[in-house]
Design a protein around this nucleic acid. Sequence first.
DNA 1: CCTCCAAAAAATGTGCACATTATGCACCGC
DNA 2: GCGGTGCATAATGTGCACATTTTTTGGAGG
Lengths: 245, 245
Amino acid sequence: MRVQRIGKANPAEDEAVYQAILRALLEGKLKAGTKLAETPLAAIFGVSRERIRKVLHRLGAERRLEMIPNRGARVPRPTLDDIRRVYEAHRVLEAGVLSQLVLRVDEVLLAQLDTHLEEERAAARRGDRAASVRLSGAFHVHLVEALGNPELSRILADLLSRSSVMVSVYEPAAQSICAVDEHGAIVAALRDRDLMRAIAVSREHFLHVEGRLRLDEAAASESEDLAAIFTPVKPLRRKPRSAQS
Amino acid sequence: MRVQRIGKANPAEDEAVYQAILRALLEGKLKAGTKLAETPLAAIFGVSRERIRKVLHRLGAERRLEMIPNRGARVPRPTLDDIRRVYEAHRVLEAGVLSQLVLRVDEVLLAQLDTHLEEERAAARRGDRAASVRLSGAFHVHLVEALGNPELSRILADLLSRSSVMVSVYEPAAQSICAVDEHGAIVAALRDRDLMRAIAVSREHFLHVEGRLRLDEAAASESEDLAAIFTPVKPLRRKPRSAQS
DNA sequence: CCTCCAAAAAATGTGCACATTATGCACCGC
DNA sequence: GCGGTGCATAATGTGCACATTTTTTGGAGG
């Protein structure tokens, strides 16, 4: 008699594994170039290999992993040019957002942005680097979301998530990503409904960030301890046979 | 003895099925709301159900199909608001593209655009509606590609492909999507390096197109003849048992 | 010592059998 | 007649057993 639990429909498992890997990816715990083999991951998460496989392919379709036929999944190792392109895309998109935003700014939005700027300054004053980085990205998210277009928000979120992975590779110290006063200048231009200035400031801002990118090839890493990376996540299902310390 | 051909590695099959469905989707042959069941598709294409399944999920990840757990794949039925959002995203993106383009236009690019405009006019003169629609979309593609940023080109291609599916639902006659002179006005503004005018013209252009959208709810359709839609594609592999006319 | 090649080992890809979930339909009580 | 209920049927989801491909290993030859 086989007590195997097969076909147990549990969509939550898919999602949990997906979120776990995505989170590790976004937090930079998975270094660029790391091979994500199916079997070890299945053992780590305590789920079947097919499930891992599905998640991996999904992440590949979203361009968050690099899938090579018959060779498995790897964390992408973006070129410096790749990163520049992502930044440029972000810059171009934000220019478009600003062009639309000057037509519909109101005091409510300006007040919200001012509040955000204040938070950024506060984080900078108390030297909270993590918060600074997070708020800095949030500023740009705030701008697109002001347009209320989910499509645009999604595109930006995509670009941002990509670049956050990238800075973990190329920004050695990850110091203050965005200077607050540059953000302030954008808001000021927005307040004046001055599109040309807003675009120019935003452009300078991005070029500034791009200029700080450094090629840190030394990071060979290949962090081989996949288990350690995912251990904080409790196993979703006990492996039926063996495979436990 | 089983002569089953299992595990026959043939990545081309995946791609062929993917392209076939995607093409049908882009050409509007698959009406909105149509259910894409796995088993019939497997029979039509002459491949295993797993292969269809994989392709369907991939298309779902790309948001080209709507996947509902345990209920299969359906051709998305976009709201009029959905479409407006896609158009707005395109418009915003193009504004950004233009803001970047005015900084680096040269005679070569302007000449290329002029050539393209001439093609559009020729198509319009001879009443070639299909060519007009195609060239009209190509104009906007041309603009982003001038920036040489694959990331941006991909984003635009994504938006365009989505909206082409949509117009097939909501544009009853699918008459001249973009007036050529509006495209010409954009090029003219670009030639003058007049960003504000270029953005304004582009904006008007898109609002014009958006304004033409009509809600054509009558299209209940549910085109049940999936086989007929995909028949032009020759079966990739003969089904081993039965299932042949 | 290095290079090249063959065989073993490991990892990925695929068809299939079956579990699970949804759907259609006849039946029954009200 | 009508709405809900239970069963039969169809469709989707999943584990598993392999096939295929890639990578590693281990020598033999130069």
